[in-house]
């Protein structure tokens, strides 16, 4: 019996190379408004919103097993508090961040209640929460029911400055939120929540703090989705409650996470880019586009249930951004890398 030596690796050569590429892309994106046209700047801001949403939904569903069909509650509340703060005279961009943090604070007690629910109950419960928040927001005289209101504070900025600043705020929020998810997944919390996702009872039995893990993901998703809602409001300006609290957001998030690859770090980002491309190309076809989205999601769940990135990862063993560890066997006849 030959002794096999092995090495535990986190950063493979591949992932190091990829990290450099990512850094370069981020550097280009960081100076985006200087090199891109107005339209591309504007569209990329929307893409950042999608990436944040997909990553947040994935953090809940893909890692903590919290499948929600009501995350639009956070998007809507993020927009609502931005309107409220801006109405109270808070400067626009700090208000985006502040609104997200307020939603995070609200998510703490709300999470205590919601996280008692399991599986389907939690999913439906979140939807109920979204509808309830929608009605409550409608009662605010500033919002004027379904008519809504607009982020008039934005009119104070020259058009170019408003567009570029919104881009940067969206970009920074996306990078920070992705970095937080990445850091969380690599640490104790990440291992814990993945254990919860696979089997909650078993995870608890080996000492994983189930409730704490879920709570962290829930609050993170609340803050992230609220930030996305705020950035989205800064690009569309009109706050119409029906649109912000609409169930279509859940469909989008589901599509991005499922098609990209649920439970992978890279998947939702790829899903968001794919969704963004489909919307840009086929959005004008209306009903046909929506049917196309549905069919694509269906086809993926039937034939590629792990999504694009999940399949790439399992078949080719590629890890671009290492969330887990690789076990590299070092034996004389040069064995394959294993996870």
């Amino acid at each position: 019996m030959a002794t096999t030596s092995y090495r535990v690796e986190r950063w493979t050569r591949q992932s190091r190379l990829f990290a450099v590429i990512i850094a370069l892309v981020l550097m280009v994106l960081a100076i985006g408004p200087f090199i891109f046209s107005a339209d591309i700047t504007d569209r990329l801001t929307t893409l950042f919103v999608y990436v944040i949403l997909a990553a947040m939904w994935n953090a809940m569903a893909g890692y903590a097993g919290l499948v929600s069909i009501g995350n639009q509650v956070f998007i809507g509340l993020g927009g609502y508090f931005l309107i409220r703060l801006s109405d109270a005279g808070v400067s626009l961009y700090p208000a985006v961040v502040l609104a997200a943090l307020i939603v995070g604070l609200i998510a703490l007690p709300v999470g205590e209640l919601m996280l008692r629910l399991r599986g389907g109950e939690f999913a439906i419960g979140m939807w109920v929460l979204a509808e309830l928040s929608h009605f409550l927001v409608n009662l605010d005289p500033v919002i004027q029911g379904e008519t809504g209101t607009s982020l008039t504070a934005l009119n104070a900025y020259p058009p170019v400055a408003a567009r570029n600043d919104t881009y940067w705020v969206g970009f920074v929020l996306m990078v920070v939120l992705l970095a937080v998810v990445f850091a969380l997944l690599r640490g104790r919390v990440g291992a814990g929540v993945q254990a919860i996702r696979d089997d909650e009872v078993a995870a608890a039995s080996v000492g994983v703090k189930v409730h704490a893990g879920k709570r962290i993901m829930f609050v993170l998703a609340a803050i992230g989705c609220a930030a996305a809602g705020g950035v989205w409001l800064a690009t569309t300006i009109s706050f119409q409650p029906g649109t912000f609290f609409g169930i279509q957001w859940t469909a989008y998030m589901l599509f991005m996470a499922l098609v990209g690859g649920l439970g992978t770090f890279e998947g939702p980002i790829i899903g968001a880019i794919l969704f963004f491309i489909m919307e840009s190309w086929f959005g004008a076809t209306g009903v046909a586009y929506l049917i196309g989205l549905g069919v694509t999601a269906l086809a993926f769940s039937l034939f590629l249930p792990r999504g694009i990135w999940g399949s790439v990862e399992t078949r080719l063993g590629i890890r671009l951004l290492p969330v887990g560890f690789s076990l590299r066997l070092v034996n004389p006849d040069g064995g394959r890398d294993r996870d």
């Binding site: 892309v25 280009v28 994106l29 985006g32 090199i35 891109f36 046209s37 107005a38 339209d39 591309i40 569209r43 990329l44 893409l47 790829i270 880019i273 794919l274 963004f276 491309i277 840009s280 190309w281």
Partner: peptide, 23 residues
């Protein structure tokens, strides 16, 4: 601009460059 946009945005570029040309 379209080309730079494409380089920066990676995969998303194909969606964007079209509009960039339009512009």
């Amino acid at each position: 601009r379209g080309v730079l946009g494409a380089a920066g945005a990676g995969v998303a570029a194909s969606a964007l460059s079209r509009s960039a040309y339009g512009q």
